[in-house]
Every structure is written in structure tokens, then in C-alpha cells.
């Protein structure tokens, strides 16, 4: 087991009082496995994964447990909830990487792509500048960005949305993380680009045996990419099972509603 989440609870202190975001979430992922978390916006799915990374806002309170298996056999696993910043920094980017919904704003507009890719390799892999540059260009090529060696010197605004998401993927997978968290990776993109992005992720994942935690509101995407799915609604986990079970024998009323809402050609 790579990641074991038990009884994850998240709430926020706000002006208006305490807001519960996630009530009691438990799930696990094996190495190389792909799991989808499905739910509408506000269901707490994004909050959950941000909590795993320690990236929630300062007014968030997280309790429960999220254990990441050790990199080498025999060592104790790492507790992510409440972990020290130093511990989290070594996990982020290196063992768990993340790509976000909006590729237009997720990259720093003030820095060249090369800078943003190289810093990751240098931080976690201890590479020198030249070595990191070479690795970064290879990664760019792996996500099928044409003329990677030249375009790595570009700034983000010189790329289209789809290309930027490819850059994000290249960056996220450059340190060969054990888990990739993709938070609505295709939602902000054109329909024609969405499949290409998902293909790129699947292809690279296969190569590096990276597990995937895919967060989406789109059941169709989950069906194509994942072996298991979690359905969340208003901070609760309402359904959990294999894709086959979730699609063909859903237990929760909500899941049936979601399935019924998928447009079908035959109508």
C-alpha cells in the first residue's frame, strides 16, 4: 500500500464561524494504481488532496491520518497530517506531485519554463544546472511538446492552455514521483485537447509505475483512467468501489443521479 488515508477531517475557521469541509474520509492507494475521486464542486475533493500535501490555507484544521509508505522497505511510513514543513517539502514534488485545474495560472508567469522545471530537479535530485536542463528537455519531449529544446526557454504566456498543461505534467513527473495527484487536469481545456492530455498522463504513468489520484467531476474521465472510484458529496464519502461496481451496481442514490446525468448518444 502506497498511501493510507484514515478518518480525514477538515474544517475552516472563517468570519462566519466554523465550516466543515470534509467529515470522515478513508481510502488507500496501491503503488501504480489509479483511483478517481468524483464529486461536484464544493464536495471537498480538492480540499482532501490539498490537505495530504499540506497546502491548505492557514485557517484550515486537519485531523485524522494519511500515511505514505516509506521509499525503502523496512523504514517506517511517513505521517503527512501535521507533518513538519521540512518533512513535507521532501515529499512534495519528489514522491507526491500535483497538477492543477487551471494551467493558465498554475505556472509562474514571471519565470521561464526552464527555470520552473530545473528548480525541481535540482531541489530533489541534486542535479547540476546542465544535467537538469537536459532532463527537463527530455521530459518536455516525453509529453510531446514539439521543439522542446527551444521552447523550454519560453515564458508560460507564450504557450497555449493545452501546452501549458503538458508542461505541468512534464514538471510533475520529472522527479518520477510515486503518486501523481491530478486535480481536474482537463476541466479548463478544450474538449479536443482533453483526451490528448489524459493519454500523455497514462503513457508516462505506465513507464514510471506512478500511482494516480484523479480528481474530477466527470465520471466519464474516471471510467477511462481509473480502476477504482470514490464518490464524494458535501464532505462525505458516499460511494467507494471498483469502477465496475460504481458504474453498474451503485449503492448510493447520489451516484445513480450522477450516472443518469451523463449524456449518452442513444439518449
Amino acid at each position: 500500500m502506497l498511501l493510507d488515508v484514515q478518518n480525514l477531517k477538515i474544517d475552516f475557521e472563517t468570519h462566519a464561524g466554523r465550516v466543515d469541509a470534509v467529515h470522515d474520509l478513508s481510502f488507500s492507494i496501491d503503488r501504480g494504481e489509479a483511483v478517481g475521486i468524483v464529486g461536484e464542486s464544493g464536495s471537498g475533493k480538492s480540499q482532501s488532496v490539498l490537505a495530504l500535501m499540506g497546502l491548505l490555507a492557514g485557517n484550515a484544521r486537519v485531523s485524522g491520518s494519511a500515511k505514505l509508505a516509506s521509499a525503502q522497505a523496512g523504514e517506517p511510513s511517513i505521517e503527512l497530517v501535521g507533518a513538519k514543513p521540512r518533512v513535507l517539502r521532501r515529499v512534495r514534488g519528489a514522491r507526491i506531485a500535483m497538477i492543477f485545474q487551471d494551467p493558465m495560472t498554475a505556472l509562474n508567469p514571471h519565470l521561464k519554463i526552464s527555470t520552473q522545471m530545473i528548480e525541481l530537479l535540482r531541489t530533489h535530485r541534486g542535479m547540476g544546472r546542465r544535467e537538469a536542463m537536459k532532463a527537463a528537455i527530455e521530459m518536455m519531449e516525453a509529453v510531446r511538446i514539439p521543439e522542446a529544446a527551444r521552447r523550454i526557454k519560453y515564458y508560460p504566456h507564450q504557450f497555449s492552455g493545452g501546452m501549458r498543461q503538458r508542461v505541468m505534467i512534464a514538471m510533475a513527473l520529472s522527479c518520477e514521483p510515486e503518486l501523481l495527484i491530478a486535480d481536474e487536469p482537463t476541466t479548463a481545456l478544450d474538449v479536443t485537447v482533453q483526451d490528448e492530455i489524459l493519454d500523455v498522463i497514462a503513457e508516462l504513468r505506465e513507464r514510471t509505475n506512478t500511482a494516480l489520484l484523479l480528481i474530477t467531476h466527470d465520471l466519464g474521465v474516471v471510467a477511462g483512467q481509473c480502476s477504482r472510484a470514490l464518490v464524494m458529496r458535501a464532505g462525505d464519502l458516499v460511494e467507494h468501489g471498483s469502477i465496475d461496481k460504481v458504474f453498474n451496481a451503485p449503492e448510493a442514490e447520489y451516484t445513480r443521479d450522477l450516472l443518469a446525468a451523463i449524456p449518452r448518444l442513444e439518449g
Binding site: A94, M98, F100, L107, E119, L120, M171
Partner: peptide, 23 residues
């Protein structure tokens, strides 16, 4: 968002502030 990305990359605090936020 890009600051969140920088954090998600596991960069040091100095680098997040100095290279990503300051400019």
C-alpha cells in the same frame, strides 16, 4: 495559483519567496 504550484513542488521557503513571489 502559481505559488501553490511552487509549494507543491517542495521548494524551500527561501526559493518560494525569493524566486516565485518576489518578482
Amino acid at each position: 495559483n502559481f505559488v501553490r504550484t511552487a509549494r507543491a513542488k517542495g521548494l524551500s521557503t527561501a526559493r518560494v519567496y525569493g524566486v516565485h513571489i518576489l518578482p
